[in-house]
């Protein structure tokens, strides 16, 4: 079989593979999952060649803790400071609104390659971030039994 026939065969097979009615969804990379911490920032809407435009650049986590209140409901407290930009291409320090969502899990999530369904998930709550200030966020789950959590920050 000559090269032309092989090439046509290869191209045909490539197109045919797109004709499958169903395809499996991609499983999460377990290594990536294990590297996630308990406070994460979602990726920005877009990237540029001069670095990411993620709000992550402006944030630093001052503290994070998990406790239970007197009734036994889990509480997650996170302190986040708006430190502003610290790159040569972005030295701004604007005030902005940060949205935070707390997800409560039965077991701690940091460092684990598997993730169970959450026990409770709050809505995305807005927090005005003033330049230089630490914003204290507190999330209480109305369900008991959570020992793990993940707080997710996003710009909107």
């Amino acid at each position: 079989m000559n090269k032309i026939v092989l090439g046509i065969l290869f191209i045909g097979m490539t197109f045919l593979s797109g004709c499958a009615a169903m395809k499996s969804a991609n499983p999460v990379d377990r290594k990536d999952l294990a590297e996630e911490s308990s406070v994460v920032v979602v990726r920005p809407n877009r990237y540029t060649l001069l670095g990411t435009q993620s709000v992550r650049d402006y944030l630093e986590v001052v503290y994070e803790e998990m406790a239970v209140n007197q009734a036994g409901y889990p509480i997650v407290r996170v302190g986040v400071r708006n430190k502003g930009g610290e790159h040569w291409w972005d030295l701004r320090a604007p005030d902005f609104t940060l949205y935070a969502q707390a997800v409560f899990y039965r077991d701690p999530v940091a460092g684990t390659e598997t993730r169970s369904a959450p026990l409770y998930k709050t809505n995305k709550q807005p927090f005005p971030m003033k330049r230089g200030e630490t914003t204290d966020m507190s999330f209480t789950a109305p369900v008991k039994g959570a020992r793990g959590y993940q707080v997710i920050f996003s710009e909107n």
Binding site: N69, Q70, A71, Y73, T122, N123, Q125, P126, T140, A141, P142
Partner: peptide
Amino acid sequence: TMAEKMGPQILSIP
């Protein structure tokens, strides 16, 4: 946000 903040508080009242 208001409902999700106040709901657990009400449930936590002794």
